[in-house]
Design a protein around this nucleic acid. Structure first.
Lengths: 358, 358
DNA sequence: TCAAGATGATAATACGGATTATCATCTTGA
DNA sequence: TCAAGATGATAATCCGTATTATCATCTTGA
């Protein structure tokens, strides 16, 4: 059987009806050349201002070409440029989940805000790789007919990123930057992440200063790098401060009860979204927060309407991460020497759930 | 002086340092051809399964080619593909304001949601035209070096769209669709809009049935098409229902006072975001809502609004508008016969501010 | 036996732009 | 007067793929 490796479908070859304007043809350098009475090569040279080397074009000729360009509104076809040249100033944005989720409290939104802001500043466009086929709820980066190479490279967003995809990006030498720290994948992965270890450690220290002697990390501490980073920071800081610590696998009633029974006085939630559930559990047990038990969310304090509690935690600098991701990307492309692995500091948030031990 | 018309700057031609993997060259059809001892054309033919017409390739030959493809992991370069074809399945998204505003209740968000959803379904990518220069707070569509022609066409978003830009889009035959109804611009403008007249009329009729005999439209009724549409629907329905009506230029205290003095019992707000201000004014005057005065918001609030009042009005089907915008766009591209000017119904929202006249 | 058809594959070209080698033509200076 | 250099512009080629026209070679039937 012959499989279609390309996976690409043309627009329907429907015969176009009698359109008013006729079939739109792009204005090409050939057209500009014809209009201004020069060759295509000349147009290209003028356009790219490549008059440095041995090439020279008379000022009047240049002007004629530029005039024709202005009149026609000519713009170089980025696809052609990409083929001949190497870059087209299009930066792909790949996400495993839809870029625009329906939830109002959108996780990706701030990242995109930063990306867009910087893209505008740098004069490049963002290509949302929406065409990547979705398989089992997640987009596939390298499916047949993958269009990821349309752009100069890409920014990878996602709570959890496929290891294989990263390896392939590295192996194929496709320039890319991950938003969020990633472990090596057959080579160092460029990223701009949040400094979870430092932020978590700072909060642990704060708890220690407030007199907490037994604290617990609530969560798996594995899976996405961000989870592992939190746990790592937690452990290191607790050990440094001489605080006893343990880990609770999930924010369920049984393990939480056990922890409290063992004298734990502060809970550090890997997943900030667990805060409401834990609060409800505490309330059900008659535990006052922070009087009897302190609560820290290791990430952005999520405050749904249902919760009146101002949970202590830290803020991930999402917008700035987006911005710097593009900076790193350009540094990669241009071969500039910069740190291509950056961890940005998080802003600590005091909140009202971390108090002294009674 | 030579001006750079293209606005395009190459990435710095900096010499890349000694990379570990070296510059990996893509595997091309030529490579496959060499490996399997055939011509590049044969590879392409096998790959695309174009063996229907006069072209024939022996099964064994096909197998050799397919084997080589499998061994090398060859993937067609989408860029070259686009060049050979006419379209690149990239759809530009142009907005006059930043696509990702910081406001939580983002006005554009639902539109983009629909666009992304449909783009994924149709297998095309969205190009956010972020490189368009901003001039006086608004993006310029046709600035020098505009990259709008970079895509197969574009979707235009924005509360208010520049007439000149639309005319140029029409004149140049660039396929495009406006999200939101637009007046003709040197030709019919394809759009997917909200049916403001119908929604507004429905609310007017409802007020009439509730006994209101004097009602007022609060707003300019001009500027964006959406304002004019609301006023038109308002006038027509009021006349039909035999209700006396007038217009108040702005949601300011003086004209509102005057209206009430003249016996107006229901206010229809062109700009839903004015609701809080009007509510505050009513409360200040001791007017009960809806006991003494009914209030209707003609649409969704465009600005984040915090209000305890559940204002009667209607919901703009933003997500669906985004979806159908892409449908219309493809219909244009493919020359399919469809209505390229669509008004989608809004969903009426009862709320608690429209009541019977006491 | 040989023209007509079938079979299998390729050369050539297009797509639009970037780049290099090359070619005219014009100045100079000796 | 004429070679050397300066000047201005272009032809040719490449990038990777799709497509069409064309070309060999082999069968077949009368």
């Amino acid at each position: 059987m012959i499989t279609r490796t390309s996976g690409y479908t043309h627009y329907e070859p429907v015969e176009k009806g009698p359109s008013v304007t006729g079939p739109r043809r792009r204005v090409t350098q050939r057209d500009i050349a014809r209009i201004s009475g020069v060759s295509q090569a000349t147009v290209s040279l003028v356009l790219n201002n490549r008059l440095d080397g041995g090439v020279r074009i008379a000022p009047e000729t240049q002007q004629r070409v530029l005039d024709a360009i202005r009149e026609t509104g000519y713009v170089a076809d980025p696809v052609a440029r990409r083929l001949a040249d190497q870059y087209n100033r299009i930066i792909g944005v790949f996400t495993y989940e839809p870029v625009f989720p329906s939830g109002a409290r959108d996780f990706f939104h701030p990242f995109l805000l930063g990306l867009e802001e910087q893209a505008e500043r740098l004069g490049c466009d963002l290509l949302l790789l929406t065409s990547a086929p979705v398989d089992g709820g997640r987009r596939r980066m390298f499916a047949d007919g993958s269009r990821i190479r349309l752009a100069d490279g890409c920014v990878v967003l996602g709570r959890e990123v496929d290891r294989g995809d990263l390896e392939r990006l590295v192996a194929e030498g496709i320039p890319f930057v991950s938003v969020g720290r990633r472990d090596d994948a057959g080579g160092p992965v460029p990223y701009v992440g949040a400094d979870y270890p430092a932020a978590t450690a700072a909060l642990v220290e704060r708890a220690a200063r407030l007199g907490h002697r037994r604290i617990a990390y609530v969560g798996s501490g594995e899976g996405p790098e961000s989870y592992a980073d939190r746990l790592r920071g937690f452990r290191a800081a607790a050990a440094d401060a001489g605080v006893e610590y343990g880990r609770i696998a999930a924010a369920a009633a049984a393990p939480l009860d056990a922890a409290v029974a063992e004298g734990v006085t502060a809970l550090f939630l890997e997943e900030p979204a667990d805060a409401p559930a834990v609060t409800a559990w505490a309330s059900g047990r008659g535990l006052g927060v922070p009087a009897d038990l302190s609560l820290v969310a290791l990430g952005d304090p999520t405050r749904p309407v249902s919760m009146d509690l101002d949970v202590a935690g830290f803020t991930i600098p999402r917008r700035e991460m987006g911005r710097q991701a593009l900076d790193v990307f350009f540094a990669l492309i241009e071969g500039a020497a910069t740190d291509t692995q950056r961890l940005l500091p998080c802003e600590l948030h005091d909140g009202a759930t971390l108090g002294p031990v009674q």
